[in-house]
Design a protein around this nucleic acid. Structure first.
Lengths: 198, 198
DNA sequence: TACTGTTTGGGAGTCTACTATCAGATTTGG
DNA sequence: CCAAATCTGATAGTAGACTCCCAAACAGTA
């Protein structure tokens, strides 16, 4: 019975992470379709067989772990915010919390990965299910916080708006060098909070 | 010099449309990956060669013509709305106009196709570029209408919110039999217009 | 060190997207 | 009705995703 700390387990985790990291990098650099599994294997210094042993298929290489992905972490943090806060205020606070205790390296890596997810259509498609789950979770939290039904159109519309505004801000930030993506999202959500008055 | 009304041209247009229609239907029914080009060809009663002659690749089967897609028609209609209307009011009016003069058959076909685009991740990916273009066009119109810069964060946020709210409403409508998707989007945009107050 | 179970790499093979090509059918124009 | 242009289907072939399987390398245990 090998415990979680054995050399074997650690090596496996490292191999898996390396494969996915190289895969995502290559997908971003050359595009998804133009990257072969063999190239990924070569970059990660394993055989193609090993790639398929760790990942169910090429598309699976693009599926981020739920608990590592930003979109899935947020709902948990929102739930921990004080009940007095409105839904958008709670979300913004959660976002700030999520990135506050992160060292710059982790932070950069995380935003880079989430940006790739938005910019490469195939990655988006591969993670659509996870994003959908995260948004549903967010909707439930908003509903509980405001005493409404999760199926309430107002609740659904709000999380839709949150998602749309955030995606837009992230993509714009990606196209504007020198912009902090987290700050951009926070500002955009602030605009939404004040009613998007034009 | 074959004019646009020749038998040949008409037949070609009909063949192309049939192939794509069957492809989209199969993608929705069985999923994108589980549908082979051969199946599409069989359903459309052509040979696989012909499918590849009309479409550059399997993914191209999912790319909707710009001028047929709803997302690309809307900006033009928004531009035609009276200048007094606010951006969201203009957008809602444009939406109503777009579907007002449509016979039920066309209307159903169009909404079904746009729903498939949202529900099948691969179709979304294939059309991401087009949707992005349409949203940019919408942003420019909003900017002109409100006298702001298209790069103004408030404008960007608004179109992001519009997109997110609409997508959410469409998906919810798709999961709720007996709901009119167009009406659902209109109502959701109405909520956004009144500030999404919770 | 030897024994055991797991992980890895390599080879062979299948399936599907996709390309190239050519003969036969069909539309068009005269 | 004939000839030219064009469209179609069939065939053959390539490439990459993915599976199966086995032998070699390796970590954990005594």
């Amino acid at each position: 019975m090998t415990s979680g700390g054995g050399l074997r387990e650690r090596k496996k985790a490292r191999t898996r992470a390396a494969i996915q990291q190289h895969a995502l990098r290559l997908f971003r650099e050359r595009g998804y379709a133009a990257t072969t599994v063999e190239q990924v294997a070569e970059a990660a210094e394993v055989s193609p067989s090993t790639v398929f042993r760790y990942f169910a298929g090429k598309d699976d290489l693009a599926v981020l772990d739920d608990h590592h992905s930003l979109a899935a972490v947020i709902p948990r943090l929102v739930a921990e915010q004080p009940a007095e806060l409105g839904p958008l205020a709670a979300l913004r606070a959660a976002l700030r919390t999520a990135f506050a205790g992160l060292d710059p390296h982790d932070r950069a890596a995380r935003t880079a990965r989430d940006l790739a997810l938005l910019q490469v259509p195939e990655l988006w498609a591969a993670n659509a299910a996870m994003v959908g789950r995260a948004l549903d979770a967010l909707g439930e939290l908003v509903a509980r916080r405001t005493g409404r039904d999760p199926a309430d159109p107002a609740v659904r519309a709000l999380i839709g708006a949150v998602a749309g505004v955030s995606v837009r801000a992230l993509l714009d930030a990606a196209n504007t060098p020198g912009t902090d993506p987290v700050e951009a999202v926070d500002r955009a959500l602030g605009l939404l909070e004040s009613g998007l008055a034009l």
